[in-house]
């Protein structure tokens, strides 16, 4: 039981991370109608920036903040130089162009930081575990991730639903020509949205950096998971992304932890040890396929599309 609660917390933590990635992806997708395969690269860059700034400044917090700012700036620069020329093209051209960007960023990271990975060391006070319920100790840092992501989710909700910028973003998602015709600088708006998405992806990378090794290609598999999240949630819906991210995070983590044991009851131990991890990796995609078969537009289809 204790193990189960711990695994659920891990699942929520993964879900929160996926939400950070998926929120940026779904914003860009919902508003600019852009399939961005390079989103995972921004996640990777965020992690590399944080690891580098941590070495330069010696401070974890300063590294996180600097990495966030630089991620946003890189995202906006990328939008101005390349991405904005892709909006008018088909989804297939988006796939081609951003696939090229993905290759470019992987190689650029190898050129700048070298092929070996990096590590980001946590400040000592974050390494400890706290007792959250009697008998359950949980690493502080993972709690920090959950809380920080929740705070970002709340902030994002506030920005999108309660501010003028958010109003323009929502308006842009439902009818971009009309927003442009009303005198809003739609180009600038798109650049800002892309920068916001890049900052969110970079933030996810920064938060994950101390847990995993910072390495080339780290964004590729998690990008696919983030795509699964926004498809399950419904493209363009931040609320959908939030719900779907937690669902996907829980299925992945809990499945990985318990499926091998469960299968052990029906199959031989050997077969279960092989099949278990494969099945739990597959389970997310099965859930996604199942949801798409019954709800082809995801759980929370955005009203406009």
């Amino acid at each position: 039981m204790l193990y189960f609660i711990e695994q659920c917390l891990n699942g929520i933590q993964l879900g929160m991370l996926l939400f950070l990635l998926a929120a940026g992806l779904t914003l860009v997708f919902g508003i600019m109608d852009l399939v961005n395969l390079a989103h995972g690269s921004l996640y990777m860059l965020g992690a590399y920036f944080a690891a580098t700034f941590a070495i330069w400044t010696g401070s974890f917090v300063a590294a996180v903040i600097l990495a966030l700012v630089v991620s946003a700036l890189v995202g906006m620069a990328l939008e101005i130089v390349a991405i904005r020329r892709l909006y008018a093209r088909s989804h297939l051209d988006h796939v081609l162009g951003t696939f090229g960007l993905l290759l470019f960023f992987n190689e650029a990271v190898r050129l700048i930081w070298g092929p070996a990975g990096m590590t980001l060391t946590l400040p000592p006070q974050m390494l400890a575990a706290v007792q959250i319920i009697p008998g359950i100790y949980y690493p502080i840092y993972r709690l920090v991730i959950i809380l920080a992501a929740l705070a970002v989710a709340a902030l994002l909700y506030f920005v999108v639903m309660r501010t003028r910028l958010g109003m323009l973003i929502r308006a842009g998602a439902s009818n971009r020509e009309m927003v442009g015709a009303l005198g809003v600088n739609i180009k600038l708006l798109y650049t800002l949205v892309f920068g916001l998405g890049a900052a969110l992806a970079g933030f996810a990378g920064v938060m994950q950096a101390p847990i995993l090794t910072v390495q080339i290609g780290m964004g590729e598999n998690i990008l696919i998971l983030a795509f699964v999240v926004i498809i399950i949630g419904g493209i363009g819906s931040i609320r959908g992304a939030f719900v779907a991210a937690i669902v996907v995070g829980l299925i992945d983590t809990v499945g990985r932890a318990f499926l091998p044991d469960l299968l052990g009851h029906i199959l031989s131990t050997n077969a279960a040890a092989t099949l278990g991890p494969a099945l739990s990796s597959m389970s997310i995609y099965m859930v996604m396929a199942g949801i798409l078969i019954f709800r082809p537009e995801g759980l929370f289809p955005a009203a406009s599309r």
Binding site: G100, L103, E107
Partner: peptide
């Protein structure tokens, strides 16, 4: 040594 540094932008240019 870094082929994708050139290949990537080529793909982007083709897409655009």
């Amino acid at each position: 040594e870094y082929p994708d540094l050139i290949l990537g932008p080529i793909l982007l240019l083709v897409a655009i």
